[in-house]
């Protein structure tokens, strides 16, 4: 087997609250992520999913344990590890295209090249008609698509996605899931996708990492080898969903 693109070994994270209480957000996380994989992290609210992604994104360096990216110790955020946030993160004073080209702009690419890249990814998410619109003129789902295009425009090696469809209605959500798989098929990024929806995890990923809350730790690591596109009516699909739900439920009881 080839080397993992991302390796977490014995990662722990405790938060100190304002009242000086310690919260074990992550406990003994050991995880290998391989290139081109679509991995979902599934867990109940508050189990430390966002915390884990923030560590991998290099946004929080206050933790124990080690995180390796391509064999090197991760020390800061970089344009090679992109992130789509749980909450809306577009710059409200920039229009859609100017938001999408932010990454290439930071990398010092010229204006023409930037716009070209930006348009390419806006087309990919189907929003090339909204180039000059402002974020507040878009619906929540459209904003999230722009945010995805913005991350992709940087051509990251790993794309971290923190419940990107969490705030959307069921219908839009399914549409965007399909769209995301199409995009992923086209350029095969490594994707680390956080969700608390069992269905979403089974529909999307090659592998599901199940987490449990307080302290947040890994419960199971389940490969999903059903062919895509997956059908929700498929018995194997239903069986896996049931299995995962039971796993989460029994954990919630204890």
């Amino acid at each position: 087997m080839n080397n993992p693109i991302l390796n977490l070994s014995d990662v722990r994270k405790t938060y100190l609250t304002e009242k000086k209480e310690r919260i074990n957000a992550l406990d003994r996380i050991d995880l290998d992520i391989f290139e081109n994989d679509f991995v979902c992290i599934l867990g109940p609210s508050g189990c430390g999913k966002s915390t884990l992604l923030r560590l991998v994104a290099g946004l929080d360096r206050d933790y124990q344990g080690k995180i390796f990216y391509k064999g090197k110790l991760l020390t800061s955020s970089s344009h090679e590890i992109g992130m789509v946030f749980q909450e809306y993160s577009l710059l409200p004073w920039r229009n859609v295209i100017d938001n999408v080209v932010l990454g290439p702009e930071f990398l010092g690419k010229g204006k023409r090249e930037r716009i070209e890249i930006g348009m390419q990814y806006l087309r990919l998410v189907g929003l090339d008609a909204y180039t000059k619109s402002y974020p507040y003129e878009l619906s929540g789902g459209m904003q999230q698509r722009v945010a995805i295009a913005r991350s992709l425009a940087n051509d990251p090696q790993i794309l971290l996605m923190d419940e990107p469809f969490g705030a959307l209605d069921a219908h839009t959500r399914i549409l965007l899931q399909k769209e995301l798989l199409t995009i992923w098929n086209k350029n095969r990024k490594t994707i680390l996708f956080v969700t608390h929806s069992v269905d979403e995890a089974v529909y999307l990923s090659d592998r599901i990492v199940v987490m449990s809350a307080s302290p947040g730790k890994m419960l199971a690591d389940i490969p999903v080898d059903m062919p895509r596109p997956r059908k929700r009516s498929d018995p194997a699909y239903g069986a896996l969903v049931t299995k995962l739900l039971e796993m989460l439920e029994s954990e919630a009881k204890t």
Partner: peptide, 16 residues
């Protein structure tokens, strides 16, 4: 903070 952090993950340095 999300705006600042998203800029960071896009490769922006402190000056950016």
């Amino acid at each position: 903070t999300t705006l600042i952090e998203s800029a960071r993950t896009l490769g922006g340095n402190e000056w950016d």
